[in-house]
Design a protein around this nucleic acid. Structure first.
Lengths: 235, 235
DNA sequence: CGCTAATTTGAGTGACTTCAAGCACAGTGG
DNA sequence: CCACTGTGCTTGAAGTCACTCAAATTAGCG
């Protein structure tokens, strides 16, 4: 199991996706490459735990990471997923609090580790980067506030439809319309904030209503406007 | 209605509470004072609406502001309250998005208006201030994530107890143990994310259980550890 | 080794319970 | 007098429990 690819150079990586590091100078990118760690993580590995002190944040080079909080009686509440090009753990590093979520590998991942000092240095010296980071946080905060409203006011049915649309926007569909992230029913339930059985029943209903088609964990989108309507979105 | 007090000097105001502007230099504080607007707002006034473009943010010199989103069928979801020394609207200014909440005056308020350019200038030139602002946002994001988990997993009863404790920490009690913010049952319901009737019933139950005492809108805390337990907090 | 047997994990269903929303209406007090 | 509070009653959405079934893993063993 020792075929970790060569450590990627930040300056090559950064421009492939609209990375948070896109405003860094050549020198800063080189320094970042020099400072950072790099490792492979298998599915199911915990990258960091809720409540642990962070020594840096992670940039995802490959794979999908699930970020969740552990609530009453150990039930997980999924806060978000992070994919290629996104960074995780930055919130806790910046606020100097302990991690507010647990990060677990959903799809085998390659992660770069950016030490706290390096991140702070960049924030202090590069105002554009700092601004970019701030804006990302603000956007995330806006999303969180929206989700609070939804979870407080919408029915489970509406929320499930909404989450499906959200996952589509985040991870996309293949040519056949199949969602490009594979989640168990339980995970789906833990995003929506409901019981696994309820999620199963509602997915069946959506299938009956010809909104989606299901093949195991594959979810194929048949009627996107219908889902949007079911989720009470954009109104 | 023209007895607006003299416009407060930022340099005098900033040190009274742990303001976000505490790291500004004398010059920067003077410039801030010079740039800013100042006005009195009566209870019920809308300061800005969800979806509107922001031209600046507001710093609260006096009063309490209610920040809420409007959900399905106009039902309001209260996101937070802001009081003396806190700033509102900054998220939308920084992220250059439209306002994600509506801001309404709960208790007659005196607000300073900080134009966007002034805020951006400070962020660009004062790394310490920028850092402080970022940390505030990160903390708020952490809180939002926690609340998502609570609202998704806890019962209404637990959430109501939790909110009462939270309001206590935010607004304090007087000597008699009475909560120093006055909310209608409906507003309380709109924080918790439940129906007004349910809130009324639960408050009565809390009273029966000797956790609180109620006199109209006055809520007196009788058994704080009991409330903490009811809210499933710190476990 | 290869091929069952045993165990685990996830998906799906049905029956039952319960929490909380919704509706209607009666006070009440600023 | 209108907005807010409070109460009773009903209904429904969603949670819980208890299973079955299928597929995937792991163990066992000749």
């Amino acid at each position: 199991m020792k075929n970790i690819p060569e450590i990627p150079e930040c300056k090559n990586c950064v421009h492939n996706f609209k990375s948070i590091f896109k405003d860094l100078s050549e020198d800063e990118l080189n320094k970042l490459s020099f400072d950072k760690g790099y490792d492979k993580y298998k599915k199911g590995t915990i990258i960091y735990n809720e409540g642990s002190r962070m020594t840096g944040c992670f940039c995802i080079n490959q794979g999908i990471i699930k970020l969740y909080k552990t609530g009453i009686e150990g039930k997980e509440q999924i806060i978000r997923f992070a994919k290629k090009g996104e960074i995780i753990g930055y919130r806790s590093v910046l606020s100097k609090e302990t991690a507010c979520t647990t990060a677990k590998v959903l799809n085998d991942a390659l992660l770069c580790f950016i030490p706290s000092v390096t991140l702070f240095e960049l924030v202090q010296t590069n105002a554009k980067f700092s601004m970019e980071l701030m804006q990302m946080t603000c956007r995330e905060l806006g999303d969180a506030n929206s989700y609070i409203t939804d979870i407080a006011q919408k029915t489970v049915r509406e929320r499930l439809a909404e989450i499906l649309i959200h996952l589509k926007n985040e991870f996309g569909l293949d040519n056949a319309g199949t969602l490009q992230i594979s989640l168990t029913r339980e995970e789906l339930a833990n995003i929506v904030g409901t019981a696994t059985e309820t999620t199963i029943r509602l997915l069946s209903e959506f299938k009956t209503d010809k909104l989606i088609d299901i093949n195991g964990r594959e979810i194929k989108f048949l009627n996107i406007p219908g889902l949007i309507k079911t989720g009470n979105l954009y109104e």
